[in-house]
């Protein structure tokens, strides 16, 4: 790991420069020159000393604060979540339509939210293109659950309220690298659906089991400048 060097620039710092460094001085993260300059100034400058005291008391208060107690059963909770993720049951054919309907209703609701947010969405619009190289007829349910049109071999959806940082974070966690604002995610229908829903800040559980797991799907995610 690279060692960071202190920023040393401090033979004759101005008062403003010293003010900026007061908390770093309390932290012990200033150069010798800056430390000496600040101590000399504190001895003469009442306003600066008052500022220093306020910072010192605040930082001291923070340091005295205990960590909040974490849940004691976190291991069990995480295990449970992982188990639920793995054991998501595939619904039978008669249940499939019901699940898809539910997913579609949620998607419709979100679509309204997306539309409402487009006007104020700032950074980027995200276009997700999903290609289905070997899609069987039965795969249509999966496509619906992923937010795409039934029966399409490829489709485009716009997810306008996803920030670029979210995509980058998920890409990083998935071990993918974005090149020119584009990343390619390839996996089973379930994996792709999970990825899409993660992009939409949603819960993975809502799509689990809906997308047929045997399909291989290539998902291209492209970030483009958003509408104002």
């Amino acid at each position: 790991m690279t060692r960071l060097e202190l920023i040393v620039n401090d033979k004759n710092p101005s008062r403003d420069e010293m003010r900026e460094q007061l908390d770093a001085y309390i932290d012990g993260f200033v150069s010798e020159d800056m430390r000496a300059a600040i101590e000399a100034a504190l001895a003469q400058d009442d306003a600066l000393r008052a500022e220093y005291e306020a910072l010192r008391r605040t930082m001291s208060l923070l340091h005295q604060t205990d960590r909040p107690a974490p849940p004691v059963d976190m291991v069990a909770r995480v295990r449970h979540r992982l188990a639920a993720e793995r054991a998501a049951p595939m619904p039978g054919d008669d249940e499939m339509d019901k699940v898809v309907d539910l997913a579609e209703r949620r998607l419709l609701k979100r679509a309204v939210l997306f539309t409402a947010s487009v006007g104020i969405a700032a950074a980027a619009a995200l276009f997700v293109v999903v290609g289905l190289p070997q899609m069987a007829e039965g795969g249509a349910h999966g496509v619906a659950a992923a937010g795409l049109s039934l029966g399409a071999r490829a489709a485009t959806i716009s997810v306008a309220d996803v920030a670029a940082t979210d995509v980058e974070m998920l890409a990083s966690e998935a071990g993918l690298t974005m090149l020119d604002g584009t990343l390619v995610f390839e996996g089973t229908g379930a994996e792709v659906a999970r990825f899409v829903f993660k992009l939409r800040s949603d819960k993975q559980a809502e799509v689990r089991g809906v997308v047929p797991d045997g399909e291989r799907i290539r998902l291209t995610v492209k970030l483009t400048p958003g509408a104002p």
């Binding site: 900026e20 460094q21 908390d23 770093a24 993260f29 910072l55 008391r57 605040t58 930082m59």
Partner: peptide, 12 residues
């Protein structure tokens, strides 16, 4: 450093 300083000053 600068952002932390502003945050601490604000918190103070």
């Amino acid at each position: 450093k600068s952002r932390l300083h502003r945050a601490r000053a604000h918190l103070a």
